[in-house]
Every structure is written in C-alpha cells, then in structure tokens.
Nucleic acid binder design. Structure first.
Length: 974
RNA sequence: GCGCGGUUAGCUCAGUGGUAGAGCACUACACUGACACUGUAGGGGUCACAGGUUCAAACCCUGUACCGCGCACCA
C-alpha cells in the first residue's frame, strides 16, 4: 500500500485524475445502453464568459447529480455547450477590435465582421469550458454544442418558419424596448428596472381660448390669448402637468384627464403645448389616476407605452422626436428648436430651464422612479415605436398545467408561483434584434419592396447606415407636423417570404437577427442528435439546474418549446405524448452568490473572486464542498472564503483518516463487519452509517430532494464527529493490541464504513475520493463505476453503551477544563457505577475501559464501590418509573455520581467551591422552572401524560442533583 | 401598489409546538505517533417588533418594521 502524503495535496491529483476519467470514457454517454437514462443539459455559458463562482456552484450541483446517477447504474448524459450570446458577444468583440485595431464593426461589412467574431471565438471562446474541467465537471465533451453550430442554426430557422406558418410569428410596428446604446430592440424580460433619482417637473399648459365655433385659435395668436379669455373667468387659465420627462413635451399630442373627474369640464377643450407650441386637445382616459401628480397626464404616444395605448384608443397622432441614439429630433423653425440634436438627458435639463424662463415651470421636486435599463449597454431604455418581429406564445394553458399537475417540479417549490404569474400575464415576445452576430431571420424581401431607411418608417431596423448616421430621422426633417404624423402612423407590408433558403437573386434577407433566447429555448433537445438515438434515449432530460433569474428567459420557454414542438413526437395517448416531450422533470434553482456585504458579485465591484485562484489555494474539492455545504436551498449565498477553507480542511480530514488506516495493514475492499465480533464503538459507527442512509431526514433523502447543503452537512458531521473524533479514537485501542478479540471487527468496520463514505462523498468531492478509493485499494479503475450506497443495516447487537463511554469522556474532559488541568497531563480517574444501571450487572469490558482511559488521557481508571441508592429511588413519586427509564438519561443528569477525579490534591478548593456554586445555581433555576410548570393545574389537566412524566422525571433528577451538589459543598467546607 | 422569500450567537446558517443548535470566529490550554488544514474545553442569543391561538410559541395566526427578489402603465 502506498504511503499517503501527510496532507492532501490537490495539485498532485486533480489534473491527473481528470485526464484519467476522460480517457476512460466514463463521461461518455451511450445511447445504445440498456441502462436507464439520466440526462442534464448544461445551461450554456456565454462564449465571452469566464468562470465565476456562480458557474462553479451551478455546475457542481449538476456534477453531483450526474456522478450520483452514474453510480446508481444509470446511463448518464451531461451535455455541455456554449451560447453565442448575440449582443453580448458582439459588444465584447467590438470592444476587442476597438482596443486592438481601433476599429468599429462598421469598418467591416457584416460578413467580414461575423467572420471576425468566429475567429475571436476560436481564440478566446473556449476558455470557460476549459475552466469547467478544473472543477471536475463530468460532462460528455464529445457532445459539446454551440448555439450557432450549423445544424443547430438550421433547427432554429426551421422553428421560425414553422411558427410563422402557424401564424404565431408576425411582423409589426409596436412599442418595444429600445436600447439607444446598442441600437437594438430587446425583450421585456431583458429590461432591468432600476431606481433612478430625478425630478418631477410641474409644467403649466395654458388653455386655448375657444373661438366662436369652438375651434382653437391659431397658435400665433398667443399674445392675444388673455384678452379673449374674458367671460370665461370661472375656468382655469391653465392646467398643470407633472412629468419626469419634459424633453418629450414636443411630442405631446394631448392632455388626458380622468373621465368624470375634477377636470371633466375641460374635456374637449385645447391647451397650448408649452414647447414647440401648438394646440393639443384635452381628452378623457381611464388610465389617468387623479391621485398622482396633478391628475393630468401629458400624452406622448411615441415615447411611452401607456401613452401609446391612450393614443391608439383616441386615434391620436404619433410624433417621434428621438433618434435611435436618443437624441432630440425636432428640427425646423419653432420655439424649442435649440433642443434639436441634443442628448435626451441634456435636453431634459435644458427644456426645464426653457420652461422656467417662460414662466411655465410651476415647480420641480426631487423624485425617484423606476426606469428600465438594458443589461448589456447599461443604458436607459427608450420605449420606441418600431417595426419588429414578434412571437405569440403557444401552449400557455398546457405550460401552466405542467407545474400544477406535477409533471414538472421546481426546487424550491415557491418559484412555481413566479412561473405561473408570468405565464398568466404573458405578452408577445419581441424576437428580432438589430445585431449582426446571431441567427439570421429566415425571411426574404423582394428587392423592390424592402424596407427603406428613408421611407419614413419609424423603425429601428432600417439597416446599419441609417442607424449609425445619428442624423435626424427622415420622418420629420423639414416637414410640417402633419406630414410627420402621417409618416409615423404608416404601416408598410412589403412582399416577403419566410423560408430558410433564398428564393432567388431578387430577394434580400431580413437584416435582423434573432434574440439569443430564441435559440436557447431549443437547447433541451436540439443539442441531442436523432440519428444515433441520443434524443430518443435522453430526452426528456432529468433535471435542469439554473438560476431563478432566467426562469422566464429560459426555463419557461424551454417547457413551452417541448410542449409545442414535441421533439419526441406523438405517442399513443396524450399523457404519453406529454411525458415524452417534457423538457425536464425537475428544476433546481440555485441561489445567487453575494459577497460578505450582501452585494452581487460583479466584475466592476471587484468583489468577485476568481474560482481558479480558489482552486489553486484550496483544491477543487474544497471549493466544491465548501460552496455546496453553505448553499441553502434556493436562498442567496453570502460568500466567505473561510467556508472554502473549511471545505479544504474537510478533505484533508478525510485524507488523514485514510492515512491512519493505511498504517494498520491492508484494506479489505469487501469487508464485512457482520462476520466479526465487534466493539460497541464499531457498532455505534455502523448505527450512524445506517441513520445517514435511511429515513426521511437522512443525508440520502436530503440529496434525493435536491437539498444538497443538508446532505453535505450531514456527511461532514458524520465524517468529522462520528468517524474521526469518536470511532477512530476508540479504534486506536484495538489497532494497538494485536490480540484484541474485537480488532478484526474494528478493521472491518473501518473499511466498510470508509468505502461507504468515499462513495457518498464522491459526487461532492470527486478528486480526493477517487484518489483515496484507488490508493486504498477499494478499486482499481474508478469509483464512478461502483455502486451507490442506499442502505446499511443497523447492527443487531447495538446498545447505547458506546454513547455512555463517549459521554463519560466528555464529562471527564469537562472536569479537566473546570479544574484547569492541562490536557496533556495524565491524571487518575475514578469511575463509580451507578446503582441499578446496566453496568452494575454487566460491567464495562476491558476494551471499554481502555477506550475511556485513552479518551480521558487518564493515568489510571479505577472502578469503585457502588454508591448508596440515589435519593430518587427512595422518594420516587412515580414508583416503577425509574427502572423503565433505562439508564442513559441518568448519565446526562447526574454525572457526578458516575465519574470523579481521584487526585484530590490537584483540586483547588476555591475553584471547586466556585464551580459547585455555579452549578447549584443553575440546577436551582431549572428546578424552579420545572416546579412552576408542574404546579400549573391547567398544564396538568391538558398536556399529554407522556410530557408530564417527562417533567416529573426531570424534577426528580434535578432534586437529586441539587442534593448531591449541596452535600459536596458542605463536605468541602467542613 | 401587488406577490414571493428572509429576519435565530460576532459571521454563515440548521431548527416547525414541550427549558435555544451546528460550523466558523473569539478566549484558554495542548505541537500526545492520522491530521496544527489538528485536538480539548469555555464565553456568547428577550429567536426583528406588537398582538392573538394554546396548558405550552423561535415554530401556528394577524399586523408592523427592515432587507432581498419578482411583477405592475403611476406620468
């Protein structure tokens, strides 16, 4: 047997073992296998990504599931891959090009740029998958996929065509979330609501004096306004509107008030728009809430979603005054012309100033509201009217039923509500992106009818030149307002066909690409090939492990995709079809990892430790185990490096237990402790192993219920306390005595339990367990092909005597502590056997006494005469109870009768008195509390009898303890 | 505004009706033959707050506060 190093050194082990595993092919899934399938698709990290702690946690959990399944005899497919991450990657590559070549993507043609991204991908894109190997991820790398693989791309386009033909995908001009930074639309789910401090501006809109015919006077007559207002004195001269966005005033087309509200009498009249002065009507709309601001809402259909709806309801024009880059676009000769060309935020300040100058700003007050931000560019989103592609979600009722009927389970369960809420309020999905890197939309326009940039279309997808120009939109350049309105509301329906291949030379493909998630939502099955039977074998997948932040973006959509596209086809019955096409059966949501202060880990904060550094420092197993042990189910994790250190320490503990074992002869890999006579300590450990594996609250049950931290904690406690601290210490007696009758049993127990522990820990800490498994000689190849332990019998002869010994040792050590006797000083102990105990009739064995002696570090351990029967026995108010009670409760309540220090000369009487007094005070307090309870007639009448018995017995033992303490004190004084 | 989590020792978290638990950190002691990535012992908590139910509440109910996360058209 090889001599084990003094400490576990992960660096010596990890790469070698990972190499070994890959070469052995254990990670490879065989679709032809007869074993039951188990499959997980890895949430594909972005190719731009670097490994974060979040990835480590996520993939460790997947690895735990996969390794366990492998040991359970299943055919496991863990399918890895990466995501092309459209905009994110495009942004990253552009940044790279800017830094290295001082170029933007517009210095290239689209084709050239995309080629550069591919090149970049070859160079830097695989980093994260290499890093995953460092943590021991047991994926089938031979099946690694990429969301832009040729066949995957084709599948995505097929899906688009299919949905288009089903009428579920359509093109239209809608309000979308526009990112002025990256110049593309994004979906509702990608908008991050962010609290913003700003101002609420109260702006005065003057009422237009009505002419005789009820029509507003022309705007240039403003100077004579007040004169015409005579006779209308009862009416206000103006309406005040509260707004956070004064820069959009020029796009106002109406004011809205609540129907039947306090301003109802003004409905139908007009006001002067205070910037770019024009008369606009006052309308009534239910969307207005009188409680907010002044109860008057300015209606700006081009720049607000609600306003757009109001505008539609009232047939109002749309005036768009922002360029794609969110600069003011309102050229021409008018009173706010100076704002033209300004950035929206500068324009906000300036427009407020202009209003102030004109006496139209009533007040401004600080205000905090929520503004949507884009994830990638970190820019405030502009609601923008734009021609885009949308998808109507199919199978929503069925998707809702999946969770309700238990076909799919979320862990923790409470995420179900979030899922349901989203599905119940779902809106069409904006799937087109004005991004070059990604899946092209399989739609072709005949050359004559393609969307033309200058055509007056308020679209963001007009093509690169248009987007970049930053010049005012054609919609309004030099034209009068009426023309702007007409242009903005126009819909164009160009001649188009939806198919993958080009219909011919006169056709051009749609410029847009698809939302990255439109490819990800097929990940659960499109990654699996059909030709070799992979999909038939491994789809539906068994589990999905991901963060709750993408529950809509990804999880829900994959379920919908499974329902709609039925990748495994129709089966005989509807129920079977459903089962065969679920994307996954269990979803485990990991928590978010935060730093000590509770902040999210992020690059910009610099609070994100590099997992590779942690691996170098603590080993992959230490990192994995440390992280999993503290990751409570579904809750966020506060990361502290200390916890990883604990993981490392634990691995070292395990290592040293094995190292200790190797010092006492060869391992028996098929050890059967049942065949040998065993010490009570061996049986004690076997009992705990049994408990660890069976029952509702066992580690195994926890693991099966996705409660990884609980399972890890239980294993940790078992190894450290039950195995190392107790059993190993006790085993030393046997190991050091070649002729001990229980020696063989102890060795067998050691080997048997160790083989279980290594297997149980292997999913959590694969490297150290594999290394030990092979070094110790449990197996030659890999621990992953061994059997997963599911049970271990409870020893038939088990008795609590081992517990007593351990408890006695604890007590003796306490005495040492209390008397301030150094742990290395050997002192004589005296053990007194309690009257009526098992040990009286069945005295401790040689081995038991030796163990106790060792644990106490006693120079001598003597059994002494029995003390007189305890007081409780004489005045027992519940006759007969004491005997039923068994023995061990006495152990805990009255240890002074059991063990005492014999070397009186070591004891300082002052210390002793102090100790006894303190103890007495505590006992008296407990006694008082117990007696109060027992004196409560209500309690006696209503509490369950068993509980009352418990209190009574507690009282008896406390009385006895009190008496004994008093006697000791008296003796000390006398 | 609505919904979902959370609030227990300095820290990270267990604990779901019967006198508060673990690990870490801290303090003291010990480099004893597996392990100092160790061992032994110790100090440390009105279980966020207020009501209610109950013989009995950290636990069940109601409300409040604070933290986190979703959702929502509050300009």
């Amino acid at each position: 047997m090889p001599e084990l190093a003094k400490a576990y050194e992960p660096q010596q082990v990890e790469d070698r073992l990972y190499q070994k595993w890959r070469e052995s092919g254990v990670f490879r899934a065989n679709p032809k296998s007869a074993r039951p399938p188990y499959s997980i698709v890895m949430p594909p990290p972005n190719i731009t990504g670097k490994l974060t702690l979040g990835h480590v946690l996520n993939n460790t959990i997947q690895d735990i599931l996969c390794r366990k399944a492998r040991m359970e005899g299943k055919e496991v497919l863990w399918l890895p891959g990466t995501d092309h991450a459209g905009l994110a990657t495009q942004t990253a590559v552009e940044k790279h090009l800017r830094q290295t070549e001082k170029k933007t993507r517009h210095d290239f043609t689209r084709e050239k740029f995309v080629a550069r991204v591919w090149k970049w991908k070859e160079e830097f894109g695989g980093i994260i998958t290499k890093q995953l190997r460092k943590i021991g991820a047991s994926c089938d790398w031979s099946r690694e996929r990429f969301t832009l693989d040729k066949d995957y791309e084709r599948a995505v386009q097929q899906v688009f065509v299919r949905l288009y033909n089903e009428g579920l995908i359509y093109r239209g001009t809608r309000m979308v979330n526009w990112c002025p930074g990256s110049l593309t639309a994004i979906s509702d789910e990608e908008v991050i609501p962010t609290k913003q401090k700003g101002f609420l501006y109260y702006v005065r809109y003057e009422l237009v004096s009505e002419g005789r015919d009820g029509s507003p006077l022309p705007s240039h007559s403003m100077l004579s306004d007040s004169g015409d207002a005579k006779g209308l004195a009862s009416l206000p001269k103006d309406l005040t509107v509260a707004t956070t966005r004064p820069e959009t005033i020029m796009a106002d087309v109406a004011l809205a008030v609540k129907p039947g509200g306090k301003w109802a009498h003004l409905i139908g009249r007009h006001v002067w728009r205070p910037l770019h002065r024009e008369a606009i009507p006052i309308i009534a709309d239910e969307a207005v809430e009188e409680g907010f601001g002044t109860g008057v809402l300015k209606v700006t259909p081009a720049h607000d979603k609600t306003d757009y709806e109001i505008g539609r309801r009232h047939n109002l024009p749309v005036i768009d005054i922002l360029t794609p880059r969110a600069k003011i676009n309102d050229p021409g000769d008018h009173d706010a012309a100076e704002l033209h060309g300004m950035d929206r935020f500068d324009a906000r300040k300036r427009s407020a100033e202009m209003l102030k100058e004109r006496g139209l700003l009533v007040k401004e007050e600080p205000y905090e509201n929520t503004v949507g931000f884009s994830e990638r560019a970190n820019e405030a989103i502009e609601p923008r009217l734009s021609l885009q592609w949308f998808m109507k979600y199919p199978n929503i009722p069925e998707a809702l039923a999946l969770l309700r009927d238990g076909h799919v389970k979320f862990h923790p369960e409470h995420w179900t509500k979030v899922y349901e809420h989203w599905l119940e309020n779902i809106q069409d999905w904006c799937i087109s992106r004005q991004v070059w890197w990604g899946h092209r939309i399989p739609v072709w326009y005949s050359v004559g009818s393609r969307r033309t940039p200058g055509g007056g279309l308020p679209s963001g997808s007009g093509g690169p030149d248009y987007l970049l120009s930053g010049s005012p939109q054609a919609t309004g350049s030099d034209q009068p307002t009426a023309a702007r309105r007409a242009a903005a509301t126009a819909e164009i329906s160009p001649e188009l066909v939806c198919q993958i291949e080009s219909p011919g030379p006169d056709w051009v493909q749609d410029e847009d690409s698809l939302d990255t998630w439109f490819s990800s939502w097929l990940w659960a099955y499109e990654t699996m090939r059909t030709e070799d039977g992979t999909r038939r074998k491994f789809y539906p997948t068994s589990a999905l492990v991901t963060g709750p932040d993408i529950i809509f973006l990804w999880v829900a959509r994959m379920l919908v995709a499974g329902l709609h596209f039925k990748p495994n086809g129709e089966k005989k019955t509807e129920a079977e079809t459903l089962e065969a096409n679920l994307a996954f059966k269990d979803v485990y949501f990991t928590g978010l990892i935060r730093d000590k202060q509770g902040r999210k880990l992020s690059k910009s904060l610099g609070n994100s430790p590099d997992p590779l550094d942690l691996i170098a420092k603590y080993g992959a197993d230490g990192l994995r185990f440390g992280l999993v042990r503290i990751a409570p189910q579904g809750a966020d994790i506060r990361f502290d490096e200390k916890q990883i250190e604990e993981g490392r320490n634990f691995c070292n503990k395990l290592w040293n237990i094995c190292r200790f074992r190797t010092m006492h002869g060869p391992i028996d890999s098929n050890a059967e402790p049942w065949k040998h006579s065993r010490s009570i300590f061996a049986d004690e450990l076997l009992k705990y192993l049994h408990v660890l594996l069976e029952g509702e609250r066992s580690a195994l049950a926890a693991l099966n219920q996705f409660n990884f931290s609980e399972a890890a904690s239980q294993l940790y406690d078992f190894v450290w306390n039950d195995f190392a601290a107790r059993f190993v210490e006790a085993a030393k007696i046997d190991f050091n005595q070649a002729d001990s009758p229980t020696r063989a049993g102890t060795l067998a127990t050691f080997d048997y339990v160790m083989s279980h522990v290594l297997r149980l820990l292997h999913p959590f800490a694969p490297f150290v367990t594999e290394e030990l498994w092979c070094d110790l000689g449990f197996g030659t190849e890999t621990i992953q092909t061994t059997l997963w332990p599911t049970q271990s019998p409870r020893p038939k002869t088990w008795s609590p005597r081992a517990l007593w010994v351990y408890a006695l040792a604890d007590m003796g050590r306490q005495l040492r502590g209390e008397y301030k006797i150094p742990p290395n000083k050997k002192v004589p102990f005296q053990l007194r056997i309690k009257f009526n105990s098992t040990w009286q009739s069945d005295p401790p064995t040689e081995n038991e006494l030796e163990v106790l002696k060792a644990l106490l570090n006693a120079s001598d351990l003597k059994l002494t005469d029995l003390p007189p029967p305890p007081i409780a026995e004489r005045n027992n108010p519940v006759p007969g109870r004491l005997v039923d009670l068994g023995d061990d409760p006495w152990l805990y309540t009255d240890f002074m009768g059991w063990i005492s220090m014999i070397a009186i000369d070591l004891i300082d009487p002052a210390v002793e008195r102090d100790r006894l007094t303190k103890e007495l005070a505590k006992v008296e307090k407990d006694l008082e509390q117990t007696r109060r309870k027992l004196g409560d007639a209500n309690m006696l009448a209503k509490a369950p009898p068993a509980k009352i018995e418990e209190w009574r017995l507690l009282e008896i033992s406390l009385v006895e303890k009190e008496k004994s303490l008093r006697e000791s004190l008296k003796k000390l004084e006398g």
